[in-house]
Amino acid sequence: MKRRIFAFISIAVASLLLVTGLQWVTPSPVVAQSNTSLLVSAAASLKEALEEIKPLYQQSKPNININYNFGASGALQQQIEQGAPADIFISAGKKQVDALEQKGLLVPGTRANLANNRLVLIVPKNIVGITSFYNLTDTKIKKIAIGEPRSVPAGEYGEQVLKKLGIFDKVKPKLVLANNVRQVLAAVESGNADAGLVYATDARISNKVKVVVTADDKYHSPIVYPLAVLKSSKNADAAKEFVQFLSGGQAKAVLKKYGFIVP
């Protein structure tokens, strides 16, 4: 009887050792690489171009999910300063990125200029008789849409142009301030404004407006789109890779397609 019990115990112990040994020598299954999400806070004027760039990037990086938060550069800057989540910031003006850099909110060495743009005066497509900025002082022009200069770079550039031309005080009562440059475009498209100041790239995507004149660069600060990775990013390495892709040939081709001037 004792021999049988001893044999049973021996078999049980051997079986346990065998199972334990197999677990020790068998490698754990490789855990599939989980998806990484990036949130890019970007100027509204970049919407179509960045949305077209997204699938191009994901062809080689299928595990990276790119999400966008489009808006006025000044508003996006404030969101970031107040702790809103974001991995990358792309502004339509230098001032907003300068402010974040001064506050130590950017990852050092990641700042770069994505593209440049031009400022244009637009009117509804059926409007005739407007050929220059000076026509904005005419009595038939009742409303001029422009971005809020304090938060919308296009509005700031527009104000600079009107002041340089000496007509700002005359047209100021006609100004209708918008929260971003796409609202300016929509106002002119709908006829709610007789004219508006937008980027050349905004006018290019609409068949309801026409460009009257392009502002001379000497009348406003350089229109540049700086970008950088934010220190608050939880995926800084992935964000750096996407920023690097934005400076490459595929992304530049898309930006050029939409009328941006690339470095």
Rank of each mutant, 00 (worst) to 15 (best):
E101R: 11
F133A: 05
Y57Q: 08
A112V: 11
V198M: 12
E101I: 00
I122M: 10
Y258Q: 05
A187Y: 01
N192R: 08
G74K: 00
L121I: 09
L76K: 03
T36F: 05
S206Y: 02
K54A: 03
Q102P: 07
R204A: 12
D169H: 12
G71Y: 00
Q102V: 14
G196T: 09
Q102E: 15
E156S: 14
Y68T: 00
T36S: 07
A112T: 13
V171A: 10
Q82G: 01
A84N: 09
Q244N: 06
R3L: 09
I205L: 08
L76G: 01
D216T: 01
V161A: 13
F8W: 12
L50N: 09
Y68G: 05
V19K: 08
P226H: 09
R150N: 10
G147Q: 07
A186T: 08
L246T: 02
A92G: 15
T214L: 06
L39K: 05
F133E: 09
Y68P: 01
E156N: 15
V176C: 04
P263F: 08
G83R: 08
T139A: 15
Q33P: 08
S91C: 03
K103A: 07
L177C: 07
F168M: 09
N65M: 03
A251M: 10
N135S: 14
F242K: 14
K234M: 00
P85N: 06
V40G: 06
V184T: 14
R111K: 15
L50D: 03
A12P: 06
